[in-house]
Design a protein around this nucleic acid. Structure first.
Lengths: 227, 227
DNA sequence: GGAATTTTCTATAGATCTATAGAAAAATAT
DNA sequence: ATATTTTTCTATAGATCTATAGAAAATTCC
């Protein structure tokens, strides 16, 4: 079995769905109401924005409700609790995100291009999904473990895809054979998260320049080639 | 003026002390009491630990007092407010830290060794100063701007030292001439903070291996040299 | 030992904030 | 038009949590 097979297997294994421990699926969303599903999304986005700004513990249900333009008490029509709101924000978009990552990893293209696509995907997520990704990175550990299983699962999937891609790069002779794929995967995620947070904070930063610089650093390092 | 001169100048300019806006120096600590100064340090460390675990907004004065083994109300003997405790935790150790950085940057040694020393210093800080550095990284933005001036100043000093060292590396022909020192400096800090947080969380991680791997990634990147 | 000073304790006012209950309003269906 | 369902509102109990005040205990000084 080749490493490409490995990646394809990982990529095609459907993400486990259905009730995960502590997930408490939103019954309303799966049933009749029409308007509900849409407004629930708005609620998640409002929560994401507020959590991103004030942190989980610093954000009140009042704040989130205000962001949505409804009364504090009404928020409980969409979330059973403030904690559940955090959970849903953390999970929001991560699904899509991991799926996108799978497509990138499976695609047959030069390693450098793949790395750039991965970084682009990671950083673009910060600017598109608004604040959900930032909240995921910074606040998820405030969730009790029971609520984190799905998030952890998605994160592990993501990291494994990255590691497999790195291994593939080594086998293809593109990457150094002596790197630790686990370490490098974590580092890439670390750099991306760090710049992702900067991108959100600082409007003057250019997304595409940042992507290029990140790729460049990870691939080529900083030492002069002539030495 | 050479770049080395630049660094030396930076390194020898004494860190601005005295009352910074919003700093509200702890009068008690500067006056007579003997036991006070010592126990105040314990208070800062207790606060650091609790803030690191629960986040600023998630940590109560009760939690901090309990960590110190005193009553909730007694905590106010050491801090005027919970917010001031956060400020002091964020500043704690950073002084020493920047001083250490200056010494490293000024010292005449091969660039690779310097980079390793810088990373060692940054990561060691995480394991020694317990949680203060983590709190600084994750929670300082919850402080109102008035309380952040000193912290910002120290951070800028630190980053400038790093940038100057990188520039020096370029001029010495060791580093690629086309890197953006500002970008690389931020990235180094990002990687270190990301691994620093991992080190605190995961006991099984080896500090020295992590240091070597970080240096290696930043200097050499991941691409195979033969390509 | 007794006075002065430092440190800690107890108790609490006043200000949140979450989550719920039940009424009201809006939307949809019949 | 009326009944049914969905969505929002108001009001509030009950549970925090911060910060202060003043008494008590511990320590230091003479």
């Amino acid at each position: 079995m080749t490493h490409r097979d490995n990646i394809i297997n990982l990529a095609e294994k459907p993400v486990a769905r259905g009730p995960v421990a502590g997930a408490e699926a939103d019954l309303r969303a799966e049933q009749k109401p029409k308007k509900y599903a849409h407004k629930k999304l708005l609620a998640i986005e409002a929560a994401a924005k507020v959590f991103a700004e004030k942190g989980f513990h610093g954000a009140t249900t009042q704040d989130i409700a205000k962001e949505m333009g409804i009364q504090q008490g009404s928020l409980y029509y969409y979330f059973k609790s403030r904690e559940q709101a955090l959970q849903e924000v953390c999970e929001y978009g991560f699904d899509v995100y991991v799926e996108r990552m799978k497509k990138i990893c499976v695609k047959d293209q030069p390693f450098e291009a793949k790395m750039m696509a991965i970084i682009t995907s990671h950083l673009t997520n910060y600017s598109h999904k608004d604040s959900a990704m930032k909240v995921h990175n910074e606040q998820r550990l405030y969730l009790p473990v029971e609520r984190r299983s799905r998030i952890k699962e998605l994160g592990t999937n993501y990291r494994r895809l990255l590691e497999a891609t790195l291994t593939e790069g080594i086998n293809a002779g593109v990457l150094r054979a002596d790197i630790d794929t686990h370490f490098i995967a974590y580092s890439i995620i670390g750099i991306c998260n760090s710049w992702g947070a900067n991108l959100i904070r600082d409007d003057s930063l250019n997304l595409f320049e940042t992507i290029e610089q990140c790729s460049d650093l990870i691939l080529y390092g900083t030492l002069c080639k002539n030495v």
